[in-house]
Structures are given as C-alpha cells and as structure tokens.
C-alpha cells in the first residue's frame, strides 16, 4: 500500500468521524443531506458484498466494517434519533434517489469489466459513489449556511478522492497490468464534482472568512 492510498483512506475516515462527531456531540445534522448518506450506505452495501468471502487483509476488512457501520449509523441518527432528526432540513433536501440510482444501475449493466452479479454490483457502487455527493452539494447551495464541521466533512471527502487519483497514477507506474478505466473515469468525475466546492473552501480559508457558496 502506497502513501497516497493510505492518506486517502485516512481522509475518508476523517470525513466520517467529523460527521459523526457533529451529529453525536452537537446532536445536530443541520446542513447534512440524508439523501447523500443513504446513497453512501447503498454504495458500501453494493461494493462490500465480498466482505465475508474475499479476505484481503485485516486492515481491509476492518475499514470495510467501519464504512458500512458508520454509514448506516449516520442514516439511523438522521432518521430515528429523537433530537438529531429535528435539525434535519427536509424542505431543502429534496433530491430524488432513483434519479441517481437507476441510471447508475443501468450503466453498470451495460459497462462493466465482467458481467457476473458481484462484478455488476461492484461497478454500480463505483458509478453511484461518483454522483452520491450531488444531493449534499445541492443542499449546501440552497441553504448557504455552512458550518465549520459540514465544510470540513465535504473537504475531507474531496481530499480522499484526490488522493485516490494519485494512488492510481502511482500504481499504474509501479504495478504491471494495472489498468482500470471504469474505476479511473468514475473516480475522476467524482473528484471534479468537488472542484467548485474546493475553490470556495480555499478562498474562505485563505481570506479567513466564513464559507459561503454563490447563488
């Protein structure tokens, strides 16, 4: 495992921890899109179907369990926790799941590396992860009101994507036969979706002002 891959995993982990910290300690999910969180839960469910049958390393299994567990825990908090759910911005979080899930599933049926069930679900998870942040970005655009923890959550997610691209470039040059167009293109699309957010995040950080997205 190279340094880019490991840093990517760690920033991904940080993003989840920041979100859980916000929800658990402040008891608020203001500015957090439930739609995005439900899509992530579906992403991990579809991708980690091999968690019991395919053992890669202890690190790998533990991380998979953390991502699966935390994504379902976050969804539970927003939907069911009697205090947290009151701060959920239902009026602005109106993105339709099916609008993203269905095209991703059809695309996975059409374009995949191997047409076995687990392979299609794995490919579907790649496509869905690429666009799962959209409801969150739309919510941030609509509400304008971005607190520090929500901003950091999206920042860490974007950093994770950028580091994974570095990891793929590194692996391409150091490992034989390491070519995965589907993963790379969907990963690149996903990272580009954060570009706009990153621009405003860095500007607010540089000028030391509160993060605000334009209309």
């Amino acid at each position: 495992m190279n340094i880019f891959r490991f840093s990517g995993d760690m920033t991904h982990l940080m993003s989840v921890l920041v979100l859980l910290l916000k929800i658990h300690t402040i008891k608020s999910c203001a500015g957090i899109s439930l739609k995005t969180q439900e899509l992530y839960a579906l992403v991990f469910l579809a991708r980690y179907l091999d968690i019991v049958t395919n053992f890669i390393s202890l690190y790998n299994t533990i991380m998979k369990l953390i991502f699966l567990g935390s994504s379902f825990m976050i969804v539970w908090y927003i939907r069911r926790h009697r205090i947290v759910r009151r701060s959920y911005d239902k009026e602005h979080d109106t993105f339709r799941h099916l609008f993203l899930v269905l095209p991703c599933f059809i695309l996975a049926l059409l374009i995949n590396e191997r047409s076995a069930f687990k392979e299609i679900m794995w490919t579907f998870s790649l496509y869905l992860e690429a666009v799962a942040i959209l409801p969150q970005l739309v919510l941030l655009q609509r509400t304008k009101n971005i607190d520090n923890l929500t901003g950091q959550y999206v920042f860490f997610l974007g950093a994770y994507r950028a580091l994974y691209i570095c990891n793929w470039i590194y692996r391409y040059f150091t490992e034989p036969h390491y070519v995965h167009w589907i993963t790379w293109i969907s990963g690149l699309v996903q990272t580009l979706l954060y570009a706009d957010f990153f621009y405003y995040y860095f500007n607010s950080w540089k000028n030391n002002v509160k993060l605000q997205l334009p209309a």
């Binding site: 998979k64 991502f67 036969h177 995965h180 993963t183």
Partner: peptide, 10 residues
C-alpha cells in the same frame, strides 16, 4: 489469471 488488484482498494 492475474489477481484483481483493484479489489484491494476501498
């Protein structure tokens, strides 16, 4: 068959 190295990623 070569091992599917991409599957060791998360």
């Amino acid at each position: 068959l070569l091992p599917d190295s991409i599957k060791d990623e998360l």
